[in-house]
Amino acid sequence: MKTLLNIIWLVFGGLWLALGYFLAGVVCCLLIVTIPWGIASFRIAAYTLWPFGRMVVDKPGGTGVFSLLGNVIWLLVAGIWIAIGHVVTAFAMAVTIVGIPLAIANLKLIPVSLMPLGKQIVPSNTPFARTYPVRTYR
């Protein structure tokens, strides 16, 4: 079922979203100072191509001060506008019965588009995916 939903997603918007994130990543990498956001844009582009069966989790070891500062800058410059775009397209996709899962997938992209640094994409069928990776304290 995930494969079918991913193919429908790819045809009805996923490809264009991924290309947009990829283009933003190229621009960010050209500007050198913004390379961390470029890498995050490439990660989001890959997630946008095939979102069903995967999820976003925090990177192991937590995020540092630079990730937090970078996320705040990203949020103010681009994150809010990208999130608004995802909400608008989710409403448009939710008009039909077939589009409801696509709208949910579009809404799943909002957290990573708001705060992309310090995140990673993992398969959702990974045991304990919600707490992935499992942290052990000594």
Rank of each mutant, 00 (worst) to 15 (best):
M1I: 10
M1R: 14
M1W: 07
L4H: 07
N6H: 01
N6S: 06
I7H: 08
I7V: 13
I8G: 06
I8A: 14
L10F: 15
V11M: 11
G14N: 03
G14D: 06
G14C: 04
L15C: 06
L17K: 09
A18I: 07
Y21K: 01
Y21Q: 04
Y21V: 00
L23C: 08
L23Q: 06
A24L: 12
A24K: 00
G25K: 00
C28T: 00
C28D: 11
C28A: 13
C29Q: 06
C29P: 00
C29A: 07
V33E: 00
V33T: 02
I35Y: 03
P36D: 02
A40K: 01
S41W: 00
I44S: 02
A45C: 00
A46E: 00
Y47L: 05
Y47M: 04
L49G: 01
L49A: 03
L49C: 07
F52H: 12
R54L: 02
M55H: 08
M55N: 01
M55S: 14
V56Q: 02
V56T: 08
V57E: 06
K59S: 11
T63I: 15
F66I: 14
S67P: 00
L68S: 09
G70H: 04
N71L: 09
W74G: 12
V77T: 12
W81A: 06
W81I: 04
I82A: 05
I82G: 05
I82H: 04
I84G: 01
G85Q: 03
H86W: 09
V87F: 15
V88I: 15
T89W: 08
A90F: 04
A90P: 06
A94R: 03
A94V: 04
A94S: 13
V95A: 13
V95C: 05
T96L: 03
I97C: 13
I97G: 03
I97N: 10
V98M: 07
V98I: 15
G99D: 10
I100E: 12
I100Y: 04
I100N: 13
P101W: 07
P101E: 06
L102P: 06
A105G: 12
N106R: 10
K108W: 14
K108P: 00
K108R: 15
L109C: 07
L109D: 01
P111G: 05
V112S: 01
L114F: 05
M115K: 04
P116R: 08
K119N: 08
I121C: 08
I121L: 08
I121D: 10
I121G: 07
V122T: 08
N125R: 12
T126Y: 11
P127R: 03
P127H: 07
P127S: 11
F128A: 15
T131L: 04
Y132D: 13
P133Y: 06
V134I: 14
R135W: 07
R135A: 15
Y137E: 14
Y137V: 14
